[in-house]
Design a protein around this nucleic acid. Structure first.
Lengths: 203, 203
DNA sequence: TAATTTATTGATTAACCAATCAATATTATA
DNA sequence: TATAATATTGATTGGTTAATCAATAAATTA
């Protein structure tokens, strides 16, 4: 029900506009990311953006969905390539950090939208309560932890809390510029993996 | 060198404007928080804001500093009331969560500024590398962990990494609306404390 | 109380913004 | 090729913005 029949040209143009929006958000941030600025980076007129997207909210919304899908599929793919629970946990942590590093432009754009865009009811995205619309990454992490406990390789702990701690530890990396500068993501990742292997392991 | 001689009236007015700015940021977010909106909530003219603050950037800057000071002093005070290292770690975690809950308006305003305002060189605050200007909360946390190791009550781990994990776990609470809704801060705090006591303890 | 400094306002300015629209160009279809 | 559908632009619209300024009010000082 989502996919309307879309011309080749229209599809390509929409992608181009979204790429330009990513670049704009990364360079000058959400507040200054006007249609004019986005159009300038795409090399097109602002009216063309209005032609392909209902309004600015529509554009940002589509971009947010796309950026989240990209990040989620990258991490899930790497995680599910592994065949043991411990390797999956490790892969999840490393892939999350790797994405932040290798796709920093997209990652910044994602942050700029999440912390600035609001729903029609003026609720900021970072405060949206996702009851039905669950967070797939958090679900995957909980699945790994739960399976590990069931298989007896992990010890006893509260899955919900442990998942939150792991996610927080990953997310904190990019919001601690001092750390980001002094410790590269691979090193930080390996240390996180080591630490959580100890923490999570059956004692 | 910071404190200029300031009239009573001017000082009171500046405080009032900053309070109105907090309310505005909480209610409609940074993007829509114009001088007009702030002035409306303060019950004054927009020109009066310009009279007391050089420009919007100046206002947001002062507000950011104030909000950070408030939050930091709240947490440090509660932490330093304790006299054992383990209690200090526990107090640090609980106070951090408590502040988010009891000062949610201010906390939201802080987030709105950090993720939107930029320096004169167009660097977003959340990307600022604080070499000289250290983060006092992170320093306190590292101090606790280091002292705990020196005293022999904590085991062997990398202080830098452990501090990041703890900070990430605390920060994650408010960015996980599902968790925020289903688990109150005290419960989450106690579970964090339990978990980190186990993790950090000499094994 | 007179003079001076500080505080406040309403009106104005110039810049920028998102969105619309008629005109035109390009592409697809018959 | 003629016609229709799609794509694109430049110009324009009405609205909002931050900031300035002259006029005035209130408070302080002499």
């Amino acid at each position: 029900m989502k996919k309307e029949k879309q011309t080749f040209i229209a599809e390509a143009r929409r992608k181009q506009i979204m790429e330009a929006a990513i670049q704009t958000l990364d360079e000058i941030g959400f507040v200054k990311a006007s249609l004019t600025q986005i159009a300038k980076r795409a090399g097109i007129s602002t009216a063309l953006i209005s032609y392909h997207f209902k309004d600015k909210f529509d554009l940002m919304n589509h971009l947010l969905v796309k950026l989240m899908e990209d990040s989620i599929s990258f991490i899930l793919k790497k995680t599910r390539q592994e065949n043991t629970i411990e390797k999956q946990l490790s892969a999840f942590i490393m892939a999350s950090l790797e994405y932040q590093y290798t796709h920093s432009e997209r990652n910044t754009a994602l942050i700029e939208i999440v912390f600035n865009a609001r729903t029609a009811e003026n609720v900021p995205y970072y405060k949206i309560n996702e009851e039905d619309d669950v967070n797939p990454l958090l679900e995957e992490l909980k699945r790994i932890l739960r399976e590990g406990q069931d298989n007896g390789v992990f010890g006893d702990f509260q899955v919900e809390i442990m998942a939150t701690i792991i996610q927080g530890s990953i997310g904190e990396y990019m919001f601690n510029p001092q750390l980001t500068k002094n410790v590269n993501w691979k090193t930080y990742g390996h240390e996180l993996v080591n630490m959580f292997e100890r923490i999570v392991k059956k004692s």
